[in-house]
């Protein structure tokens, strides 16, 4: 599992897409740190809670709006590419299928953690404080996106289709998830518990709920992969 995680982590940095995403995060972090004080100087009534997270709000916003698109764009083919090209056979004959999925998940998640921690450190240079709660929420959110991406990659055998799906879901997911959180329609509202935004609505430890959902999604992905013929 560790070898798979290590390879996924290193592979995540290769290519132009991760460089663009890292650049977007670092630039956002830089301007977020540099200009967040401007928001404070404007005559806007912020709650104490909002003031706490104001320096990292740009990163949070970026993750909420584009997070799914970024994660799926980078990792939509993490499983199905290997199954399609049958490189997966070298792995399934050596280790358990759960180790493959968890190894891949941890490797890519660690890539995102590195990106986020770096971004938060850039912000902390300007504001002289490190927003741990928002960082935990952000990493939990990325974990959810990633688990969902891996599940889809196990479910859908064609990498071309998951690439298309990554664009559609990347756009639709934040809109739909926001709707479930703010709607009063009971037929839709219950879904907020299955989606991540509800758990990061406030600065608290509800993000643990996201990690539980991540566990459930990965469990389903492993169960499906165990039945898959490679």
């Amino acid at each position: 599992m560790l070898a798979i995680s290590k390879r996924e982590f290193i592979e995540s940095f290769k290519g132009i897409k991760p460089i663009i995403i890292i650049a977007i995060f670092l630039i956002t972090a830089y301007y977020s740190g540099k200009f967040s004080d401007l928001l404070l100087s404007a005559n806007i009534d912020f709650t104490a809670e909002e003031l706490e997270g104001i320096h990292t709000i740009a990163i949070s916003g970026l993750l909420i709006i584009f997070g799914m698109l970024f994660v799926m764009g980078l990792s939509h083919d993490t499983m199905n590419r290997e199954m399609h090209e049958r490189t997966i056979r070298f792995l399934v004959t050596r280790t358990s299928r759960s180790a493959i999925i968890i190894g891949k998940f941890l490797g890519i998640w660690f890539f995102w953690i590195v990106c986020l921690v770096t971004s938060f450190m850039v912000i902390s240079i300007f504001v002289h404080k490190f927003d741990m709660i928002t960082l935990f929420q952000a990493t939990s959110l990325v974990a959810y996106y990633l688990a969902l991406t891996i599940l889809l990659s196990v479910l859908i055998p064609k990498p071309g289709f998951t690439m298309f799906l990554s664009i559609v879901l990347g756009i639709a997911f934040p809109i739909f998830n926001s709707w479930t959180v703010f709607t009063s329609n009971p037929w839709v509202s219950w879904m907020k518990y299955l989606l991540p935004f509800y758990y990061i609505n406030d600065r608290n430890f509800y993000f643990v709920g996201i990690l539980l959902l991540v566990g459930v999604i990965l469990f389903i992905a492993i169960a499906i992969f165990n039945r898959r013929e490679c």
Binding site: L2, A3, R89, F90, L91, R94
Partner: peptide, 29 residues
């Protein structure tokens, strides 16, 4: 699985990995 070695009938290798890296990676797996 640690005690068996398998050469599948059809399998593609990772094009971006060298022969040496393949062996090191798969042994580590």
């Amino acid at each position: 699985k640690k005690q068996i070695g398998v050469m599948p009938d059809y399998s593609a290798l990772n094009a971006s990995m060298t022969a040496m890296k393949h062996l090191k990676f798969l042994a580590a797996v």
